[in-house]
Design a protein around this nucleic acid. Structure first.
Length: 165
DNA sequence: ATCCTCATTGCAC
DNA sequence: GTGCAATGAGGAT
């Protein structure tokens, strides 16, 4: 986190921020949403994939990423990415069954997902509602202005993009 | 080391 | 209807 570069892609409802390591092999470590229209950065593999996803020309994000593996949360996120592809949705309970855990823990895993879109957590919904969106990383690590986003607006936007709602 | 937070569900009253 | 355990990990202090 101490050495990261931020790329920006704009869309209809705001901006998508892509945090990457600046090491030799550049890896994406975090993806965040902002309700503000920020200035876009130059095109690279990260921004171009996000743009293609947003205009429907690709259905899988597979640029190089880095995240903490070998945890329960990571396993849940990997199962989600593997099994629930574009245009599909799943409930917290069903994903919990697949991962041999409880729905609440699936919610926790989604809330701590550092790589939304790469791990398609917007495709996980509650049994009788859309569930939530924007967890721990909803709050910017920069102390002063807690940049809270309207999470449900983003979840609906993404599900609508994929034709799920 | 302890406490708090965060996207749910189903069963008991 | 409401109440409540179960439960993983990271951040704050």
């Amino acid at each position: 986190m101490h050495n990261s570069e931020i790329f920006v892609v704009r869309c209809e409802i705001g901006s998508i921020l892509i945090y990457c390591s600046t090491s030799e092999e550049r890896l994406c470590e975090r993806i965040e949403f902002s309700d503000e229209q920020l200035e876009e950065t130059a095109e690279n593999i990260f921004t171009s994939q996000i743009k293609e996803y947003l205009n429907g020309s690709i259905k899988v994000i597979d640029f190089p990423v880095s995240y903490k593996k070998d945890t329960k949360f990571a396993h849940i996120l990997e199962q989600l990415r593997e099994r629930v592809n574009y245009g599909r949705i799943i409930t917290y309970a069903d994903l919990a069954t697949i991962c041999n855990t409880t729905p609440r823990v699936v919610g926790f895993a989604m809330a701590s997902n550092p790589l939304p879109l790469y791990f398609p957590c917007h495709r996980v919904v509650a049994k009788n509602s859309l569930g939530g969106f924007g967890g721990r990383f909803n709050i910017s690590s920069n102390s002063a202005s807690k940049n809270k986003i309207d999470g449900m607006k983003w979840k609906k936007y993404l599900l609508n993009l994929e034709g799920s709602i």
